[in-house]
Design a binder for these strands. Structure first.
Lengths: 192, 192
DNA sequence: TAGTGATTTCAGAAATTTCTGAAATCACAG
DNA sequence: CTGTGATTTCAGAAATTTCTGAAATCACTA
């Protein structure tokens, strides 16, 4: 591996991290390298910088493309493909969330739904279904929230983040106002 | 594997999923099995149900304990250990979030901070640091938000979830009230 | 159409992870 | 102590994943 020390630490860490997620070491390293490179890199440059085979780079880039995590660029009068990551880290976060949901959450929800449709043939199955129902409900709540907030513009999203738990204070305040103004009982869980 | 069909589907799916995360197939399967079992199971029962070796069960349970994902129970006059998962799925979610943060986010933050302390020795390093700074800022924002909302009682958390993006509406309303009442300009990003 | 360089594919090699059975350890009862 | 059963450890076997080099494919030019 032939990189400036700071970049190398970063790349190595992402390699480690990669294996702790589902993606493998090389994929993590390539992503990290692209992320901190000022200009797009071609496959050969990546292979040289990381000291890995050209074919490994090809396969790993394919993987990153499947995750929508890299952008393909071209230089005039150069047939080679060049790769980068998006500039905006918020955009990267969104992509990551979306892809992980697609790969991890959606299949689980669909398996759960499938199982919950069936009729339990024993007390053991009845109880198992009950538990899966609880899990299903929780995941649905989380994904609904996600589908909702992912629509927000980045600025609003950042605002929401920075408020954190303090929004609950607002909720209380709002409930007071409403109940005061219209004589209704507060019901913070009401969706509409 | 010797399980009721519904349970088996669930267990197999979690095994698959496990490998897509960092944990391995067996660990995922054991967790799934415990989750849907009405009563705590001992190691031997797990080994039999899943058709895996006793020693594999032992190592996998150790792994699950390291994740704080299982509870140890004892029956009177029985020396064996029995295992379950917590009843409350929200509690499970909290544990999962906490442990993943500990293993994935915290080490990354610490590597980033370390690198950002250093003085760049070249333009390439300078740019790389800039990018890592962006990443660091984003992750800090996310973890601050997390540290904040994880304190909430489950009921409030659920309320917050169900509101989703609608809280931004409230923020706008609040800003109007404040600016009206006190003659201040709205500043939704203001933390205090 | 032949030639050139970039890229991909893929069979097998290398590395890593997972799993097992046998032995060791442990905890307790008699 | 000694025996019994539960549990853990760990070296190596088995399985899986990752990586490579050689060959194939592709895209484009002359």
């Amino acid at each position: 591996m032939n990189l400036p020390p700071l970049v190398q630490s970063f790349v190595l860490h992402f390699g480690e991290m990669g294996s702790r997620w589902g993606i493998n070491r090389t994929v993590g390293q390539i992503y990290a390298l692209l992320f901190v490179s000022p200009a797009p890199l071609c496959a050969e440059e990546i292979a040289d910088s990381l000291g890995i085979s050209r074919s490994n780079v090809s396969m790993s880039l394919r993987e990153l493309q499947a995750w929508n995590l890299v952008l393909l660029k071209h230089k005039p009068d150069d047939r080679r493909d060049f790769f980068t990551t998006p500039d905006d880290v918020w955009q990267i976060l969104r992509t990551l969330a979306e892809e992980r949901k697609k790969r991890e959450v959606d299949p689980t929800l669909s398996v759960l739904r499938e199982i919950l449709m069936q009729r339990p043939a024993s007390e053991a199955e009845r109880y198992a279904q009950e538990r899966m129902g609880e899990m299903h409900t929780l995941i649905e709540q989380l994904t609904h929230w996600y589908e909702d907030v992912k629509q927000l513009e980045t600025e609003r999203l950042a605002t929401l983040l920075s408020l954190g738990a303090k929004v609950t204070k607002l909720l209380e305040a709002k409930d007071r106002v409403i109940s005061l103004g219209r004589g209704r009982r507060p019901n913070p869980a009401n969706k509409s």
